[in-house]
Design a protein around this nucleic acid. Structure first.
Lengths: 354, 354
DNA sequence: TTGTAGGCGTTATCAG
DNA sequence: CTGATAACGCCTACAA
């Protein structure tokens, strides 16, 4: 490959001049400038990101650490980040942790030696990441945590309003007349799970309802988790008339369990998911869900990281994105016979922002 | 961060010795060796991948170019590649092309300057990539094309047996008694689309059936494509009794169109998808599909790339993975009244490998 | 405005 | 077996 030296020769100028032209780091007289640019075009020269990175102590790479790209929520996040990165001349290095903190630390340590400009992390759990990320910051790299936060996190972050999102969904169900609401949370060591539960609790409290013992089940954020916990819920007496599943995969598992128990959603039991993935549109019944935009989450994170690169010591930013309850066919008023009180049933209402 | 010089000082040896210990490039006497290793442990030293890459003319990065991580087929591919990469100390740089050849070329050119050891590409279309990839090969990087192949591709590749997969599905439908089979292909400038159509045609021919005019529709590989083309198919006279959708998203769109036309799958029309994504299990009816393993595709590609790095001039390898027809609820024998000939209906058969 | 030269952290060559 | 030392390609003072 061509390098700067060759360009310099071809253009009949010195190495420094080539660099100046390329980086606009000094005013170069037009004829020389043109000769350099011509040589660049002629050879298709592109500067070595490696050498440049070595010299500048920073590359145009953005490191991104996520739990698992196979979880349908994350591709959107990655894509959002990649688009913003690409638009600004950055590339994404992607790593999966499988929610394994050990793997996360390995990636964190390994990636640093590529001197990325920024690091976007969806933490594997609530472990403190300060030590690891601090070394990035010392190296001049921006660090942004998204979706959930590690213990003691005070740096930049992008999350969604989990509390309001969940509260909204629960309130909606309560408004339909439900009094026996159950919740299947994600792993409670994740801050987003905690917050969704908090929102659910808040809505119940506001309505003067109690969370019955056993009506709160903690599951993994996947179909299997939703399936098994729903099986438990459906056996309880009294059986809940509505379930808030704290993500869509859990809701999907719940739907399967409900179907398997020969119950009908929404007639026997209402179901609301969280995330609003595409797949909620193709189940039957179509799944109601608290929508959030994974793309926006990733894009905002990448933008925040790039901003931080430019403005090293602005105060930490905490972006909180909105959610939107999308009501579809999986919710209905409870059966009259299953409740003493019966409020007017509403169905097919449109979006309710939170 | 600590660097080799510091380690050398701390261990009281020379720079070269440190390098030798770290890379096993020369036998170093135990006491010295130990002192170096201790210094490394003490400082948490990690070699700069940038400097190393610059010197070696090659990094531990694997570049991966895919159409769109939002398409649910690709995350599996990426994950397979990442796992193999990670296990061998490599990291993945991920880029999306949106099937835009221009964007693809930009990525191709930009990524090269990071000197990745390998490049895994899912081509955006049938454009010739030889020029671009040749420059990778000259730089000593392995190039592997997967899923579909660009024009004139003679290098390493990993694909699936698209022809047999599609033929198998069509034969199965024919075996059920269907005589009016339609196919919705993907974009026909993609080799996988071409091959699936080829397989479909072969099965028809073998059964002495003809592909009726209009029964072959070309769509984009997404829900919208499947939806609109199915609408067309359902209006035809005679209406096809079975549709082979050349990927699952198309099948999903088809299902929606069928539902919207107040028809019933599989009673009125049988439907088979391609890919066997998770979402085929949660539709109703559950979607039959020609399964392939995206994870294996990605993993094989990464492995092939790493093998190639080790064995630069072994002959090009073309790995072809198998598919497996997964029969679920979306297929049935055609209605007796819709066909003169009526073969014995079969349902719920298990997997049929191809 | 342009050229020169030192050095970023490694690896690899070559003496000792 | 160990230690200097010269690149790798680029950026950036600093000198001209």
């Amino acid at each position: 490959m061509a390098n700067m030296k060759k360009i310099a020769e071809l253009a009949g100028v010195s190495l420094g001049t080539v660099s100046h032209v390329l980086n606009g780091t000094a005013r170069v007289r037009e004829p020389l400038r043109k000769r350099v640019l011509d040589a660049v075009r002629l050879t298709g020269y592109q500067p070595s990101q490696l050498a440049r990175g070595l010299r500048r102590d920073k590359t145009n790479l953005l490191a991104m650490i996520i739990p698992d790209i196979l979880n349908p929520f994350f591709p959107g996040v990655v894509r959002g980040a990649e688009d913003v990165a690409f638009a600004n001349g950055y590339r994404l290095v992607l790593c999966n942790t499988d929610n394994d903190h050990g793997k996360e630390v390995m990636h964190l340590n390994a990636l640093r030696t590529y001197l990325p400009s920024g690091l976007i992390v969806i933490p594997s759990d609530f472990s403190d990441l300060t030590a690891q990320t601090e070394s990035y910051r010392r190296a001049g790299a921006a660090v942004v945590c998204i979706d959930r936060l590690p213990r003691n996190w005070i740096g930049d972050s992008v999350t969604i309003n989990n509390v309001d999102g969940a509260a909204n969904a629960a309130s909606y169900l309560i408004g339909l007349g439900h009094r026996h609401l159950a919740v299947i949370t994600g792993p409670l060591h994740l801050t987003n799970s905690q917050d969704r539960l908090k929102g659910f609790r808040r809505a119940l409290k506001q309505a003067g309802l109690e969370l019955m013992p056993g009506y709160m089940q903690e599951a993994t954020f996947d179909r299997a988790g939703g399936y098994s916990k729903t099986k438990i819920l459906l056996k309880m007496v009294p059986r809940p008339t509505a379930i808030l599943a704290c993500n869509d995969l859990i809701a999907l598992g719940a739907l399967l369990a409900i179907r398997e128990e020969k119950l009908h959603c929404p007639d026997d039991i209402s179901l609301v998911g969280f995330d609003g993935l595409d797949l909620t549109e193709t189940t039957s019944p179509q799944l109601s869900s608290v929508y959030q935009s994974p793309y926006q989450l990733g894009a905002a994170a990448a933008q925040l990281a790039l901003d931080r690169v430019a403005q090293k010591d602005a105060p930490a930013k905490h972006i909180v994105l909105k959610t939107e309850l999308r009501v579809r066919d999986s919710v209905a008023a409870p059966r009259p016979d299953s409740e003493a009180i019966h409020t007017t049933p509403r169905r097919k209402s449109r979006s309710v922002a939170s």
